[in-house]
Design a protein around this nucleic acid. Structure first.
Lengths: 208, 208
DNA sequence: GTCTATATAGGGATAGAC
DNA sequence: GTCTATCCCTATATAGAC
């Protein structure tokens, strides 16, 4: 692997592990056994590394969100869809950990992150509307809007919440199922009893 | 006002306005027109200032949470109760903005913050259980648990979400009503139609 | 491309005079 | 209690040799 790419991979690892504000360019260079000077040959500064990682995140998150939602999706499919989104957040969780601080340094990142949130809300509205139209949910337009916001917030901050609840121990990839369940629980009250039962069944399979 | 107290007041103001990581002890001293040396006469370091502010936050938040929930609370009363909690968060919003970073520096704060979250969840369970027992809600034990978690997360992160959505403009105190509404919307699906209608009425009064 | 050495700046914190 | 002066440390970033 090229040095430039190794810098990105190592930075992502350290950022996710320790929190971006706690990782210096020296830390990254040390971890890779290269000199700081070498790192600065490949990137003008730390922000440029973050910018490139954000780019990767944006591309693949928008890609996940675009997963075609075909007709005839089952509850199980939605579960997996949300799981995919959580996995992507997990991969770049350093962004979410210090969201305000990272975004304030760069107005463009802020706008791009908001576009991702917009896309998430839109995707949520689409799914719910299609379920309603298929007679699987009872919900009005205004409730859809509020619900979409709740889903987006839960998706954005679940991992932060979990980390605090774990008293700072780094969360485990295996815990994502709980976050998925928490998102589904926002939707559950609008499902008919059969739908809720199915959800509980899936959940108990995943949460052990 | 004593200098020591003025330091606390000024720190809180600047932290809330700029974000704690962006405020130095020099900034605080400059804002007050005192010397850095003077500041360090009153506080050993920045962490001690944060610790004292956290203490204030903890005391008054636990106090708000203890507001006796008498029998016969109306939806309107719950609305005001949640509003009080949001106002307290607003007063110390710097804590919530960089929660992970602030708490990781001090294990004790972390435990104390978790205790506050525990108390919030407990308070939420109590309210919901009493509404259920009064026949105002249809909800089972497991749903109560999940709902309480959702309410706590929404309360903890709503303001962060709103700030990002406002593209970094500092949120306004007047926007809190929207957060209250979002929390109530989590509970709404479990209310009978009359309850939901009343909630919408209150909301439209507050949200304009 | 990579290294060593170093410049620069800023924040945290202290000493000692007043 | 308050100020001035200053020290130390750490993080960012650059220069120039190899």
């Amino acid at each position: 692997m090229k040095t430039r790419d190794r810098i990105l991979v190592t930075s992502l690892e350290l950022f996710n592990l320790c929190g971006e504000p706690n990782v210096t360019t020296i830390d990254i260079a040390n971890e890779m056994d290269i000199s700081p000077g070498n790192l600065y040959y490949h990137f003008r500064n730390k922000d440029e590394i973050i910018g490139e990682l954000f780019q990767q995140f944006e591309t693949s998150m928008l890609d996940v969100l675009q997963t075609p939602q075909e007709e005839g999706f089952e509850i199980m499919d939605y579960w997996m869809y949300i799981h995919l989104i959580f996995e992507k957040i997990w991969e770049f969780r350093f962004l979410y950990r210090d969201l305000a601080t990272i975004l304030e340094r760069n107005e463009k990142l802020q706008k791009r992150f908001n576009r991702i949130l917009d896309r998430k809300a839109e995707s949520c509205r689409t799914v719910i509307t299609s379920m309603r139209d298929a007679g699987l949910m009872e919900i009005d337009e205004h409730q859809i809007e509020t619900l979409a916001t709740n889903v987006v917030i839960m998706g954005t901050y679940w991992m932060n919440y979990q980390q605090i609840r774990n008293l700072g121990d780094n969360p485990e990839l295996e815990d994502l199922g709980h976050g998925v369940y928490q998102v589904m629980s926002l939707i559950a009250p609008f499902l008919p009893p059969e739908g809720r039962a199915m959800l509980d069944e899936i959940a108990s399979g995943y949460l052990g």
